[in-house]
């Protein structure tokens, strides 16, 4: 069984697909890392509604 060699167009398209794929994976990883950082620095925020949790707020604070 023989295969015809790839046309130049296929090589270019493959390179472009790999490039776009890597960019997308990088973007997802960056958004994930950003989310982790933002959540970690969120402090006394309730996870699901983004409001302060009373029992986490330091005593004596006005907020």
């Amino acid at each position: 069984m023989t295969f015809r060699p790839d046309h130049e167009l296929h090589k270019r398209r493959k390179g472009r697909n790999i490039g776009v794929g890597l960019v997308l994976v990088g973007f997802v990883a960056l958004v994930f890392l950003l989310t982790v950082v933002k959540v970690e620095r969120g402090g006394s925020l309730q996870g699901f509604d983004h409001t302060q949790r009373i029992d986490m707020v330091p005593q004596g604070s006005n907020k």
């Binding site: 046309h7 130049e8 167009l9 270019r12 398209r13 390179g15 472009r16 790999i18 490039g19 776009v20």
Partner: peptide, 18 residues
């Protein structure tokens, strides 16, 4: 056919977009 490929050889590469 290969002929139809040839008519599209202007398809850009990733580097062209960059």
């Amino acid at each position: 056919s290969d002929t139809s490929f040839d008519s599209q050889t202007r398809e850009a590469s990733f580097g062209d977009y960059f």
